[in-house]
Write a protein that binds this DNA or RNA. Structure first.
Lengths: 139, 139
DNA sequence: CGTCAATGGTTACTAATGGATACCTACGAT
DNA sequence: ATCGTAGGTATCCATTAGTAACCATTGACG
């Protein structure tokens, strides 16, 4: 049977039928406001490893809470690890896992497409907005 | 100056500082609940072209309104075109643009990574949840 | 002694967004 | 009268993003 994004699809009389699947789940995480910035910053860091406050300083505008939530989600997905050092003051190191590092080339491939097409997207948006309403009836 | 995702970053005493950028914008669109399914369905269709009701039938669970909004956003970004035929009953064809088609390989590269790593992600989530660690949603 | 800063969080609360549901148009064919 | 097409509008609910305040620890400062 044919597959789409790794899932089989059933042919109806008219075509395939898709349902939300793994790619959506992962893209939804990357598409949230901060995740890609955390991944990017870690990918730049020596040893793919940073402290909480380095991440906080390195991402303009992120709040403590949002950074905590983003890191928790990434840790839950196995893309990074959290190491707590009970020193004074306490220190926490976040590091990309092997899986996290393995995602970087695919992510870079995608962001490369975005970089080359971003001007076209912005132009399309400007043109669309200046045209006014789409008009379901052509008016 | 070094770049991340096509944007220059300034070194502070401690490292780069990132701000939300184009990749986030595009990934946020792909990460919404339906967009990737619309793109996938169009990529499967002959001529990368489908009618509104084919898309509606082809995506399990999407409402009319959500499909309309998703298509509008993709049209605004220049990833697909909308052709209205004032027949009775009316007919509307949605087709991927050249830019829309050019995105498919990069998207496929990314979803390929997701396919190979999805079992690991699910395992990591299950392990994380069973450890009884603090919930990522703040609860 | 009292207070401050730095660390990495948590809790409570509010604002913004996303999505679902229901109902509306207009037209011709049956 | 009703269906099928391609939507629009109005309303409600759930999720999410974000803000502000708080906590615990300890050394430094005065």
């Amino acid at each position: 049977m044919a597959e789409i994004h790794g899932r089989p699809y059933a042919m109806t009389g008219r075509g395939p039928v898709l349902t939300p699947c793994a790619p959506h789940d992962v893209l939804a995480r990357l598409g949230d406001k901060w995740t890609i910035l955390v991944m990017s910053l870690l990918s730049l860091a020596p040893g793919n490893q940073l402290r909480f406050s380095d991440l906080r300083r390195g991402i303009r505008g992120i709040s403590q809470r949002m950074l905590t939530l983003t890191l928790r989600n990434l840790e839950r997905d196995g893309l990074l690890t959290r190491h707590y050092f009970p020193e004074v003051p306490p220190r926490v190191e976040y590091a990309l896992t092997e899986m996290g590092r393995s995602m970087l080339p695919a992510l870079e491939g995608f962001t490369a497409w975005i970089r080359s097409n971003w001007p076209s997207i912005e132009a399309a948006r400007a043109a669309y907005d200046s045209r006014g309403e789409p008009g379901a009836d052509g008016t």
